[in-house]
Design a protein around this nucleic acid. Sequence first.
RNA 1: AGUCGCGUAGCUCAGUGGUAGAGCACCUCCUUGACAUGGAGGUGGUCGGUGGUUCGAUCCCACUCGCGACUACCA
Length: 940
Amino acid sequence: MDKVYAPHEIERRIYERWESNGWFAPSGKGTGYSIAIPPPNVTGTLHMGHAFQHTLMDMLTRYHRMRGDDTLWQPGTDHAGIATQMVVERQLNAQGIKRTDLTREDFVERVWKWKAQSGGTINGQMRRLGDSVDWSRDRFTMDEGLSKAVVETFVRLHEEGLIYRGKRLVNWDPVLLTALSDLEVESEEEEGSLWHLRYPLEDGSGHLVVATTRPETMLGDTAVAVNPEDERYIKLIGGKLRLPLTDRLIPIIADTYVDPAFGSGAVKITPAHDFNDYEIGQRHELPMINVFTPRAAMNENVPTRFQGLDRFEARKQVVRELDEAGLLERIDKHKLMVPRGDRTNSVLEPYLTDQWYVKIAPLAEPAIKAVEDGRTRFVPENYSKIYFEWMRNIKDWCVSRQLWWGHRIPAWYDEQGGVFVGRDELEVRAKFEIPASTKLTQDTDVLDTWFSSALWPYSTLGWPEKTSELARFYPTSVLVTGFDIIFFWVARMMMFGLRFMGDVPFRDVYITGLIRDELGDKMSKSKGNVIDPLDIVDGIDIEALVAKRTSGLMQPQMAATIEKNTRKQYPTGMAPHGTDALRFTFAALASPSRDIRFDLARVAGYRNFCNKLWNAARFVSMTVGETAPAPGPTELSVADRWIRSRFSRMLEQFENALREYRFDFAATALYEFTWYEFCDWYLELTKPVMQSETSSEAAKHGTRQTLAEMLEALQRALHPLMPFITEEIWQLAAPLAGRKGETVMLQPFPASGEYPRDADAEREIEWIRSFILGVRQIRSGMDIAPSKKLAVLLSGTLAATETGSDTFAATGGVSASDRARIEKHRPYLERLGGLESITPLVAGASAPQSATALIGELTILVPMAGLIDADAEIERLTKKIEKTRLDRDKIAKKLANENFVKNAPPEVVAQDRERIAEFERTLASLEAQLARVRSLKGDQ
RNA sequence: AGUCGCGUAGCUCAGUGGUAGAGCACCUCCUUGACAUGGAGGUGGUCGGUGGUUCGAUCCCACUCGCGACUACCA
């Protein structure tokens, strides 16, 4: 084995072996456990957020697989309608081709080609991350089976009256030329203006001032509304206004929607271009005048001179003409929320079109109830509030998109505009008895991407067929995802799953935080702070990193800033850390309901941990040899018993943590056990046994066996989190421990109960640790070289009258139990403390000038002759005394409060009394020692 | 405007009604045969502020300051 763990060498080889052996597939035995992957965009790449979520999913998957569950992690990708179409359009544009230059079929063909070309990226990344998904079941939302599920769902919902087509206002993207759902709208506060316009009264007796943020829409006004209570305008209600720039007369209506305190208290009503106005229009049966083309230029319904103008040009011209006509009262600065498309960032228009909608209330109700009843549980729990909040105010879902890439809506039209929904044209003709002579054309729209995503947990398992997989793996066990798609995805899976499967799609929903950069900013390409998870794994030099971050920017002018920041943050690029270190970092940082500021130093720490584990394995193999210890008489040392006991406790902690999705606790339990107990103490404690000529063969045998057993079992415990290094070490450790098997990933997860708890061993080792710690503190405090062997003396608190004078003379008042311990553990104490001897201070002999440590009743004296600086010892003691006094006083104060003594639970009071006594003893001893050192110093 | 979070060591974060924790950073010492990606020891915090409940509050409650996220129709 190499001295330093080199992840790169082994990770690919190991994954290849796992995959080619088909070990990721469900075993077909045991309880079903399943996770459906949140399908990433097929043409995208995985970012840190994916890597984070995948780590948690893989950890759960590997753990349950090892527990013997029939475990499926279902992989797949999403066609991501708008996002993918935009990418391909951009590529075409770069070649000077417009999408509309191609036929729909040609364009879709190109998208499929792009998918084939780029679609492997994600799967490649997942393999590097160690994701143990069942590749044989890989799915794509546009593949045949899933498309069938989409059509089936649409048709059934339509049959049940839960899908309808209607002409309404939708959020229209004038760049993409498609409708969007409410969720795809991102409103941002922007600086704008509030224009106060004068609308002349019909009789010429004056004018009414209306305030608007969108003057260009005035060409489509069909009324002006005031509040019915508004004294100023009450007499005008029912009258008419002459709409400037047009020849139309529009009514003044009363509606309580109008807030008299805002603007002028009079609102122009444009039912075809504003959601509120639309509703007012419905209430008052106002005509709707659409003044925009789909690209948001002015259409034929406005005066000729405005026709064809872009909306923002039209705005300027409208304002100018009104101003010239003396109809512009004033312009106020005004902040307003501007709706923008989440993909194009273009300003959206409320626009009147025919679209397909899912009637959502009947679907939402059971989905709310399922969470209320705890059939699906959010972790952390407070996300259920966000879910409820949205579900209770949910509006119908516009599912049609005017795109080319996606699932075509299964609806056909005849030439009279009749609409027929069915699974295909044949079915439609049969069902509605439409003769072959009648021409039918299919709806040209596609469905919202999230429509197919909503079916994911069961469509991937073969629905609408009744498959054995559905029976076995639905509902899935847990969904791991980010809060940002609770509405987009989680809620919709709940609604559809309950409707079509009659049960929730997942038992638990674990919501992860967001991975942010080291400054707490969201990672995004445009900010140039994105980290590719594989760059952390493999490392990347600074030039390559800068190139990566500054290429293909939407705003190339940002490149210089991005380069500067990148060079500052990563002067030498990133070192390779390996997948296991990255995974460990994600788990350790996965505290509930908290975003993660990603810190590369943390990964380096866990890379060191990998190296530590690696070297522990080296040590074990050097100590044990290359084969399992031959059978023979075996004696387990106190350390051997102790490490098993501690391992048992750690496993319990780990499993409890994982049950509650506390990946951070689970990781910490593994880390602390491995480093602080197994490496720091157990391996050290084996040395006195193994490297001594006096220890028995049986004892050596027991230690060898324990070393092999623990190393092997530890790999299994660590495997779900660190799959690669544990596989590599396990291959070496398994034979030593006499365990057979081809791979650690299919071995049973170690059970806490297999390793006996041993309270006695834990007590003994605790005592040994404090003894050694005491010596080390003196050594360090007194600046004694580690290589210098010390001869320590002991004294106890027993008096001659208690022990008999002879015994006292020989033992220095050290209690029998301490003496027994010292004898029993002498090799440990001498070796780990760097001691040459441990002898009781002979009674009567005056104690030499020493530094001391207290272990309960036992005092360890390190003679100072030639070693120790008395001043340093005085300083050390003074410091210790001060600290002990503070601790004592704090408790003394508490105990002095009679209410505390009266009201606190007796065990708390008793415990404090005990502690104070302990502090008093320590203090007395420290003070005596201080006095001694002082007086001896005086003698010098 | 409403809803939900967050404020603990220099930094990033755990945590508990009863002795404040980790990683990184920092200081001192150490190339001792697993590991310098290491070992040993150490420094460092009136737990955002004020008030209340309690024998006791970093934790529970109220108010307050600061930060963030989400939702929403103010023309």
